Simulated assay, not measured.
Amino acid sequence: MGLKRRPIRNRRLLDSARGRPCELRVPGVCQGGTETTVAAHSNWSEDGKAAGQKADDIFHARACAACHRWLDEGSAPDAEKRELFHRGLKRTWRRLIDEGVIQLEGVWS
Rank of each mutant, 00 (worst) to 15 (best):
G19D: 08
G19M: 07
R20L: 05
R20V: 04
P21I: 08
C22S: 07
C22A: 09
C22T: 03
E23M: 13
E23R: 15
L24W: 05
L24G: 00
V26Q: 03
V26A: 04
P27Q: 10
P27W: 14
P27R: 09
G28S: 04
V29A: 02
V29W: 06
C30P: 02
Q31M: 13
Q31W: 12
E35W: 10
E35N: 09
E35A: 14
T36V: 05
T36I: 04
T36W: 05
T37S: 07
T37E: 03
V38N: 11
A39V: 07
A39S: 12
A39H: 04
A39T: 06
A39L: 02
A40H: 07
A40C: 15
A40I: 02
H41F: 08
S42Q: 06
S42F: 05
S42D: 08
N43C: 12
N43W: 10
W44P: 00
W44Q: 14
W44L: 13
S45N: 10
A51V: 15
A51Y: 14
A51R: 15
G52P: 00
G52Q: 04
Q53R: 15
Q53M: 12
Q53V: 14
Q53K: 15
K54F: 14
A55H: 03
A55I: 03
A55E: 03
A55F: 03
D56Q: 08
D56K: 05
D56T: 06
D57K: 04
I58N: 12
F59V: 07
F59Y: 13
H60W: 06
H60L: 13
H60I: 11
R62Q: 10
A63G: 03
C64K: 01
A65P: 01
A65C: 08
A65F: 08
A66V: 00
A66W: 02
A66Q: 08
A66P: 01
H68L: 01
H68P: 00
R69Y: 09
R69N: 10
R69E: 08
W70G: 00
W70C: 00
D72Q: 07
D72P: 01
E73M: 12
E73K: 15
G74Q: 02
A76M: 08
A76F: 12
P77Q: 11
P77G: 05
D78P: 06
D78A: 11
D78Y: 13
D78N: 11
A79V: 14
A79G: 08
E80V: 11
E80N: 09
K81M: 05
K81E: 06
K81I: 03
K81T: 04
E83W: 13
E83L: 10
L84C: 00
L84N: 01
L84F: 08
H86T: 10
H86N: 14
R87Q: 15
G88Q: 04
G88V: 03
L89K: 12
L89I: 06
L89Y: 15
R94W: 10
R94K: 14
R95N: 12
L96A: 07
L96W: 09
I97S: 07
I97A: 14
D98W: 09
G100M: 07
G100R: 08
V101F: 05
Q103V: 15
L104N: 13
V107H: 13
V107W: 13
W108L: 12
W108Q: 12
S109G: 12
